[in-house]
Design a protein around this nucleic acid. Structure first.
Lengths: 183, 183
DNA sequence: TCCCGCCTGTAGCGATCGCTACATTTTTAT
DNA sequence: ATAAAAATGTAGCGATCGCTACAGGCGGGA
C-alpha cells in the first residue's frame, strides 16, 4: 500500500508545520491530529505510539532542515571565511528559518534530558549541517572538517545567544572570531 | 516574617536540586512539593501560581549558577586565551555542572517558545557569565568585552555539541578558534 | 455470496495537570 | 483573652494526557 505511505508522508508534512509553529516538546496527539485532519486514534494506529510518531517526525524534520539549507543556499564556495559565516548567519536568522531554531532548542532540551531519539536526530542534523557547510568553505581552506566544526559550533552559540535576546554578544563573537580566523 | 522567607528560600534550594536532577520544563507541582516535604497546595499559596514559582526558581537558579562559577574558579587571570578557554570548558563539562547544562537547555527551549521569564533568566545568566569570564581573561586582552562575548558564544556552542554527542566537533572548534584567537 | 482482515469513528479509561472551596489550626494583634 | 489574620490539610474540580475497547465499514479472495 503506497496509498497509506503517501498519506503518512503527508501527515508528517502537516505535523512538521504544526510543530514549527507551536513547538515540539509540548505537542500532544489531539492537536497534531487536528492539524492534519485526522484523529489521535489514527495517529496511534499508524505510528504505534506517540514515541513512534515523534521518531518519524524527528527524521522528517532532520531531512527537511538539511534539504532546506541546500535549497536556500545552493552549493558554492564562499569568498572568505567571514563572508561564509555572514551568509550562513543571515540564513539562520531569516524569519523563514526561525521556526527551526525554536524546535532545534526543543530537540536539544529533550536530548539533554536523555531522550535517545532526540539525541540521535540532533546528531544527524549536526552531521548533515557540517557536511553542507564544509562544501561552502573557501576553496583554500586547510583543514576543512575542523574549520566547518569550528564555524558550526560558533553558529550554535549564535542561535543560543539570539534565543535569549543577546544578539549583541553573538554579533561581537562573529566579528571577533570571523576576523581572527581569516588572518 | 523572616520565618516564612527562610522557608521559601529553603524550598527553592530543594526545588533547584530537584529540577537539576529531573529537568525544568516537565516539572510539576506535586513532585516539586514532595521533593521539599510540602504539598502543591502550599506552593500555590506561597508563590501565587506555578508561574510565580517558576519565576522565583529561575532567579534562584540564575544566582546559584553564577555563584557556582565564582566558587569553582575564583577570580584570577588566565595565562592565555586558549588556557582560559580550556579551563572554562573543563569546568562546564565537570559532572558537578552537568545538571546545569540540562536545565540551561530547558530554559533556552522555553525562551525560544516565548516564555518571557525564561528569556529574562537566560539573558541574566548570560550577562553574569560574561562578566565573570571577562575577569578571567589574560591581562593583555585588548577588547575584553568583545573577547568575552566571543568565548561565551563559542562555549554555548560547545554545550550544544556536547548535548547531542558531538563532542568531537566541539573539541575541534575549541582547538581551531583557541589557536586562532591567541595569534 | 460470504467471510476475513485492514481501517476508522465513538466513547471512554485511568492518570496527571494547575488550581480551588472549605474547614481547621496556628499565629498575631489588641 | 479574644478577635482577626495567616497558614495548612483534605478533597476534589475540570481539563488534558496517551492510549484502548468496542463496534462497525469496506475491500478483495474463497
Amino acid at each position: 500500500m503506497t496509498r497509506t505511505q503517501d498519506r503518512k508522508e503527508h501527515w508528517l508534512d502537516g505535523m512538521a508545520q504544526h510543530v514549527l509553529a507551536h513547538g515540539l516538546n509540548n505537542a500532544s496527539l489531539r492537536p497534531l491530529a487536528q492539524a492534519v485532519g485526522t484523529s489521535d486514534r489514527m495517529l496511534i494506529y499508524h505510528f504505534g505510539s506517540k514515541e513512534g510518531l515523534i521518531d518519524a517526525l524527528l527524521r522528517h524534520l532532520a531531512g527537511g532542515f538539511v534539504a532546506g539549507l541546500e535549497a536556500a543556499l545552493p552549493p558554492g564556495r564562499a569568498a572568505s571565511l567571514p563572508a561564509c559565516l555572514a551568509e550562513v548567519v543571515a540564513l539562520l536568522r531569516n524569519p523563514a528559518m526561525a521556526g527551526y531554531a525554536r524546535i532545534w532548542l526543543d530537540i536539544l532540551s529533550a536530548a539533554a534530558g536523555g531522550e535517545a531519539a532526540h539525541r540521535q536526530a540532533g546528531q544527524d542534523i549536526m552531521a548533515g549541517f557540517a557536511l553542507w557547510l564544509e562544501g561552502r568553505l573557501p576553496e583554500d581552506t586547510h583543514d576543512s572538517a575542523a574549520t566547518a566544526a569550528a564555524l558550526l559550533t560558533l553558529l550554535e552559540g549564535v542561535i543560543v545567544m539570539d534565543s535569549v535576546g543577546q544578539q549583541d554578544m553573538a554579533d561581537a563573537a562573529i566579528a571577533v572570531i570571523g576576523q581572527s580566523l581569516s588572518r
